[in-house]
């Protein structure tokens, strides 16, 4: 009885050690991820997450990869378009939100978002491109709407509160006020209109036709 139990314990311990090894490293082999068929013919040919992701800047959530520095430092060089005539649109403006809440204010940086995404991914379906025009709520985000379309699904998850709620309220209030003053300068309207014109350039249809 005791011998059998010990053997069984040893077996459990051995399998646990193996599981813990990749649980600690963060990336399960495809054959153990619960999705891939370990007996499928393709499994040996596919790239393993650990092989690719362990070389990228590390993180503690999501894919355990800090994707923004990975892109900005050129560790990865992902393509920006397929069609040669597709416009590439970037925009650099911080938006400060939740200036008077109980959490620190949110700084939404357009720059890293537009490095990955096109304007049309968020505007105007998810967010109206106008300060104060969007009723943004954590309740709705947690349901997978607004920011939660990506954050919590593919971008860093909603457990990482302070990555968005990152600016002290008084500082955010000042920065937002400075933005408002800058926006009120004589040429600000023209610059904004120019930006809007550029941003509203419709995407050219992809060569084979967009569904």
């Amino acid at each position: 009885m005791l011998g059998f139990t010990r053997t069984r314990l040893l077996l459990i311990a051995a399998s646990l050690t193996a599981s813990l090894c990749w649980a600690a490293s963060g990336w399960a082999p495809l054959a153990d991820d619960g999705l891939h068929d370990p007996n499928g013919p393709g499994i040996r040919l596919l790239q393993q997450p650990g092989d690719a992701l362990s070389n990228l800047p590390g993180d503690t959530a999501g894919n355990n990869v800090h994707w923004i520095p990975a892109l900005q430092k050129g560790v990865i060089v992902p393509r920006e378009k397929i069609g040669k005539d597709t416009p590439v649109r970037r925009y650099d403006r911080d938006v400060f939100l939740n200036l008077y809440g109980s959490m620190p204010a949110v700084r939404f940086p357009h720059k890293p978002h537009t490095e990955w995404l096109d304007c049309s991914n968020c505007h105007d379906q998810l967010f109206k491109p106008k300060a104060g025009a969007n009723q943004i709520s954590m309740f709705v985000i947690l349901q997978g709407q607004q920011c939660g379309v990506c954050h919590g699904a593919v971008a860093f998850p909603l457990t990482e509160c302070r990555r968005c709620h990152s600016v002290a309220n008084d500082l955010a209030q000042r920065l937002a006020a400075e933005q408002a003053i800058a926006d009120a300068q004589p040429d600000a309207h023209a610059r904004l209109e120019q930006m809007r014109r550029e941003a509203s350039v419709p995407l050219l249809p992809s060569p084979k036709g967009t569904p």
């Binding site: 378009k81 490095e115 991914n121």
Partner: peptide, 22 residues
């Protein structure tokens, strides 16, 4: 796998150019 594609393409390629809804 999003991770595999993300190394090679930005989100906008599939989700804006190719028309995959998010």
């Amino acid at each position: 796998p999003h991770w595999f594609h993300r190394i090679r393409f930005r989100c906008k390629v599939c989700h804006a150019e190719l028309g995959f809804k998010m």
